[in-house]
Each structure stands twice: as C-alpha cells, then as structure tokens.
C-alpha cells in the first residue's frame, strides 16, 4: 500500500482545460494514475486527453459513481470557490496546487473541510507521488523521468518522504532511490503557513501504512510542523524510525525565501529549536542534506545485491 494515492483511487482535475491542468493531466495519466475526468465551468462537453470535461465537480462525481481525489489547477484567486465546490460535492481529498492563495481563503477552506470530513494537501504543493501507483499534481514531471528517478517499494527497505519544499521532495526521492531504498509515497505538504495536511498528519499516515518502514522528513525553519512531529514521536504515536533534515540554517530571522511558511517570527520556528526538539524525541537529524541517504540506509538497510 501507499498513502493518499494508489492505482485504484479515482482522480479528477479541476481546471482541466487550462495550460497547467491539461499538461499535468497528461503526465498523471502517463504515470498510471486513474484520472477519470475533470471540469472547467463553461467547457462541459469538451475532451482533454480523451477524458470527458464537465462544467461542475458534482457532474464528474455523478458520472463516475464517486471520486476519491480532486487535483485543483485553477488560478489562486479562484481556488476557494473551486475547493468549496469539491467539498460540497463530497470529494474527501483535495490537492491545491496553486501558489499565492490568500490566507483567509485557505483558512475558510480548512474550516469547511473540517466540517465536512474532507482533507486537503497544499496550497502551494507540487503534489504527491506513489511510485508504481499514481501521482497527484505535478511532482516528477514526465512519467518516464519519474519512473527512472523513484524506486518502487522494496519490502523491508521502504521509506515514505514528507517535505515542506516541492523541489526537495523530488530530490529526496531521487537520492534515496540512488542509495538503493524503496519508496512508498512522496508528499509535498505545501509551502504556505496554513496548509491542509502538515508533516505530523502525513507522518501519522505513514505510521499506519504497513508498507512504509521509515519516514524521511525535509523540514524548514518557521512554523511548528517539525515541533509537532517531535511531540508525536516523543509521545509514542509515531514509532517508525524518522530521519530528518531541516533547511534554512543560515537564513536570517525575518527573511523570507519564497516559502510563506518558512519565515521565523520571534523565537518561534528556529532551526536550532527544531533540531533540538526532534533529536530529544529520538529522531535522527542530519546536518547536511547530502548525509540524508546514508543516514536513512543505516536505519532501514538496503537489500543485499
């Protein structure tokens, strides 16, 4: 098993007729994702990659006897409406790809999702990929690349990756695969400060996934996700080995490097504070990103070749 996406999940795309929506639908299909259709208001009746396009989410849901995941590629200013529509149509997992989603919109989506028992990844996420199963969003790019970069699970030597940086999600997957490890799922939680499923939530899913043997975390300065992960480990809710790298050691307080979430405010969310808490909880924290594969191998081992 993998988490969040596997080959059986029915996936739809909102904004499927746009530049990104169209291109990413092709790549998701190419990787084997079970994309069943999509919608764009006013474009019902068209086709994208041989898939039917509807006007509304509810029409896609109805036509397919339910949809498990909606990947949303509409512009940031329209995302609130699109997400609310998907939640109201009964979709339980959303992937909000766009960057620059207004904070109060993200919070409104979170509030409505909670009420309706739905969850979401992002906003500002590259997506989720389960090698050999499927991909949500734009992670990995071309299917041939993604297949070459990311190993499929290897029994007893399989890690799940959760990252606050989109690009580094792929990097983690690539370098861990080169080191001989298998991968269950790679998840980019999104770069914003208010996100649907933060690191501790994803780690919990990996904890419950029988296929995942260890959890690799690419954390960053700012916010409290790493601290909450440390608490989950310390309290015994996460018992699988965790290996982490925390980026942004040299960043100055108050400086923001693209990720809205990666800003240090006051003494909250500092690099030193996160590393200390994680180490105290028993997490292996590496100082250099380049040390991550080796440290992970030393925890789960690689199959004898």
């Amino acid at each position: 098993m993998a988490i969040l996406i596997d080959r059986n999940k029915k996936v739809m795309v909102q904004g499927i007729t746009g530049r990104e929506g169209r291109a990413r639908t092709r790549l998701m299909l190419g990787f084997g994702t079970n994309v069943v259709g999509g919608c764009t208001p006013g474009k019902g009746g068209e086709e994208v990659e041989g898939l039917p396009v509807h006007d509304k989410v509810s029409e896609v849901v109805e036509a397919n006897d339910g949809v498990d995941v909606s990947v949303i590629f509409v512009p940031a200013r329209l995302i609130k409406h699109a997400a609310m529509e998907a939640i109201d149509a009964g979709v339980k997992l959303l992937v909000l790809v766009p960057d620059r989603v207004p904070l109060w919109d993200a919070m409104s989506i979170a509030s409505h999702a909670k009420e309706s028992g739905a969850e979401f990844i992002g906003p500002n996420t590259l997506g989720v990929i389960s090698p050999g199963q499927g991909v949500l969003g734009m992670i990995g790019g071309r299917a041939a690349s993604a297949k070459g970069w990311f190993n499929e699970p290897i029994p007893g030597h399989t890690v799940g990756v959760v990252s606050r940086s989109g690009g580094m999600t792929s990097s983690c997957g690539y370098y861990l695969s080169r080191a001989g490890l298998g991968l269950s799922t790679l998840c980019h939680v999104g770069g914003d400060s208010v996100i649907g499923m933060p690191i501790p939530r994803i780690a919990q899913l990996f904890q419950e996934d029988p296929e995942t043997d260890a959890i690799v975390v690419f954390g960053e300065i700012g916010g409290s996700q790493e601290e909450r992960l440390a608490e989950a480990v310390a309290s015994g809710r996460i018992t699988k080995p965790v290996v982490a790298y925390i980026g942004g050691k040299a960043a100055r307080e108050g400086t923001r490097f693209s990720h809205a979430g990666a800003i240090i405010e006051g003494n909250r969310g500092t690099h030193a504070g996160k590393v200390e808490m994680l180490r105290e909880a028993g997490v292996t924290v590496v100082d250099g990103f380049g040390d991550l594969p080796e440290a992970t191998v030393s925890v789960v081992g690689v199959p004898a070749s």
Binding site: G166, S171, A250, F257, S258, A262, F289
Partner: peptide, 29 residues
C-alpha cells in the same frame, strides 16, 4: 529554483566564501 533547494544552494555558495547580492527564485514551471 524552489525555496528549499535555493536555501541549500545559497549555503553552498556562502561556504565557498562568496557574498550573495540577491535572492531570486524562478520555479513552478
């Protein structure tokens, strides 16, 4: 390109003894 990778790369350039005039990120296709 990308916040996380950029921070790491800036650290690498700083370690070589350079001063970075700017931060710039073009990513997300």
């Amino acid at each position: 390109a990308g916040g996380g990778g950029s921070m790491m790369s800036m650290d690498a350039a700083s370690s070589e003894g350079f001063t970075l005039a700017n931060f710039c990120d073009t990513s997300g296709n």
